[in-house]
């Protein structure tokens, strides 16, 4: 049977559910905004990114917060896999005549759309830190965030599928997902960091997602290269690979029948 209808239906369900749970909408959006404001104001006095032009840390941090919104929304939407299992919804999907790819794609497309949508709302605050966007920028940013959101949602899917409690997922979020964001050049640049961290940042696939978003925001590759941001080609290539790898991982996780299928 065709993949389109079940994928559409599963993705649509994600959006409807999310929008009906106001606390989720607010949580996934407000947390990054609060981070942005607190860290932005708090660090802007002591932290001057290299080649700073004016708005200082608030501006540097802005694309980082966009990616944080993608990460948080991906986490919130994939954590529902665990709830779907517990509540029994997933069982009825598992015995339906749909492939596991449809189940993965439905969830990941739904989560991606939510994440990019939430980030797009935040994007409207860009002018407040002196980032002036034209329609081309906006398109570039949305385009850049799509593969990043896809990769993060697929990653969340693969992790959530094998978890039997939301507590377990929260632990993973704290020790793995959140540090992954912290060390992605979103919070502070690789340039100037201790050499060990610099390497961690270089090896972190999300670094290239943040770089891609940064490029899309300014559309000025030369200036960013000078500040130590990876090139557009490198950022795009690494992000696409990240998305492909996490999707395959999610697919592999879902293809296995876990003990959790039986709850």
């Amino acid at each position: 049977m065709s993949l389109v209808l079940p994928v559409y239906s599963l993705a649509r369900r994600e959006l409807v559910r999310f929008l009906r749970q106001r606390n989720r909408v607010v949580g996934a959006f407000l947390t990054p905004v609060i981070f942005w404001l607190l860290f932005g104001f708090g660090l802007s006095g002591s932290f001057r990114p290299e080649g700073d032009t004016g708005a200082g840390y608030m501006e540097f941090f802005f694309p980082g917060v966009l990616v944080m919104i993608l990460l948080f929304t991906a986490i919130f939407s994939t954590i529902s896999i665990i709830e779907d299992r517990k509540e029994g919804f997933l069982q009825s999907v598992l015995v339906a005549p749909v492939s596991r790819s449809a189940i993965v794609l439905g969830k990941v497309f739904g989560g991606t759309a939510l994440a990019v949508g939430q980030a797009a709302v935040f994007l409207m605050l860009a002018p407040t830190v002196g980032i002036h966007l034209n329609p081309l920028n906006v398109l570039a940013i949305l385009g850049a965030m799509l593969p990043v959101a896809f990769a993060l949602t697929a990653l969340g899917f693969a992790l959530a599928w094998v978890m039997d409690s939301t507590q377990g997922y929260h632990a993973i979020m704290n020790v793995f997902l959140f540090p992954m964001w912290l060390l992605s050049g979103a919070f502070f640049p690789a340039k100037g960091a201790p050499v060990v961290l610099e390497w961690v940042i270089k090896l972190n696939p999300l670094t290239y997602g943040v770089a891609l978003t940064r490029h899309a925001l300014y559309l000025d590759p030369e200036a960013l290269r000078e500040k130590g941001v990876p090139s557009v080609a490198c950022a795009l290539g690494a992000t696409l690979v990240f998305a492909a790898v996490t999707f395959l991982w999610a697919h592999k996780a879902a293809a296995k029948r876990t003990k959790g299928d039986l709850q």
Partner: peptide, 19 residues
């Protein structure tokens, strides 16, 4: 129970139909 509580009865059935 396998119903999605955040969906209406008809929406739950519509989703099932699509599957």
């Amino acid at each position: 129970p396998s119903l999605d509580k955040k969906l209406t009865a008809a929406e739950n059935l519509r989703h099932q139909g699509h599957l």
